[in-house]
Design a protein around this nucleic acid. Structure first.
Lengths: 195, 195
DNA sequence: GTCTATAAAGTGATAGAC
DNA sequence: GTCTATCACTTTATAGAC
């Protein structure tokens, strides 16, 4: 594998710092220090802080797409794939307890800053929503698939906030179970109504 | 009514700005300008930014307690009172779409700042949790009351984040209906099990 | 209680040497 | 591509006059 380009290393460091410390709280100095660069050199790669945010969102979009493709192969059934999504709460529990959901906390921060990139952050949500819709559609949920997908997204966001506030792993596991139970129940009910 | 003290006006302005623009993004200058004071005078009332945050959380605690007492009188039955809580999503919809939930977004921001006041922000959640627990307990939910309360809290947080990201009022109304439906269902089920 | 002035540090951003 | 030096600005915070 070739050595990683400086630009790539900057983006990955910024992604990590934006998540852990927040976008505004992260300074050029912080990112430069994390990569081991001077601030001056930094400006060779990115002209403004918003440019870095742009690149970080691009990175997150690409990683999300790759993750969704992975789940698409991993899960044998659509319901198992929905399970893959819900289980990120458990897989990433340690980080979520400390820093919340990367999508939700970024969107909330950008909203308060009235930042122009809010719509780009929303696109990350839509990637998940479309993929979840696709799973529900495969389970014969038809036109209700989109709203089911949004509901699961919302429940995950709520569980992530609870995790950060209450630091209670058992609570999150319970929320995960309830989400999966809800999905199974609602799919079954929708399928019955069709017959 | 007596003229409001300067200190009180500062706290209320800070509360509003912390909510709308975030804690870190709000400077002493912003608060001073909102109240119509000089920055110098500001330091007569508060020595550090954390002192202001402390006072703002005190204010939110007091306002929350007063709101819960109001709901306690307003709702005829415990289930109606739970309805009062869930309906803040609709009552405060316009603000939530722009700035999210005041509790959740503050907790998420303080987490990323590794701020010492995280535990104080959690206390705000616990006020709601205890009050909701009390309602479920009055509905004979016994030892399950606490987890029911936490679940409703989590769902509200998730719905608030969805509101900010998707700006879709119909979606939030649907989430509110689903929450109330869930509460009614779970209370009925718990009561049946008792018999 | 309120103000101005100012310190001390940090911010995003630029220019230019190597 | 990487560096140092520097600019203009903002931040929290203090001192002292009125």
């Amino acid at each position: 594998m070739a050595k990683k380009k400086t630009k790539e290393r900057i983006i990955e460091a910024a992604d990590d710092l934006f998540y852990r410390n927040g976008f505004e709280h992260t300074s050029f100095h912080d990112i430069a220090a994390a990569v081991g660069l001077s601030r001056g050199n930094f400006y060779y790669h990115f002209k403004t802080k918003d440019d870095i945010l742009d690149a970080v969102i691009d990175l997150r979009m690409a990683r999300t797409k790759s993750l969704l493709n992975q789940w698409q192969d991993e899960g044998q059934t659509p319901m198992e794939r929905i399970g893959c999504f819900v289980h990120i709460l458990i897989v990433n529990m340690a980080k979520i307890k400390l820093y919340g959901c990367p999508l939700g906390t970024l969107s909330n921060e950008l909203a308060k800053l009235e930042h122009s990139h809010q719509s780009r952050a929303k696109q990350l949500f839509i990637l998940f929503q479309d993929w979840l819709s696709q799973q529900f559609r495969a389970l014969d949920c038809g036109e209700k698939s989109e709203e089911f997908a949004l509901h699961i997204l919302g429940r995950s966001q709520g569980a992530a906030t609870l995790a950060t506030v209450f630091q209670d792993e058992a609570l999150i596991r319970k929320e995960v179970d309830m989400m999966l139970h809800w999905a199974a129940q609602v799919v079954e009910k929708t399928q019955k109504e069709k017959v």
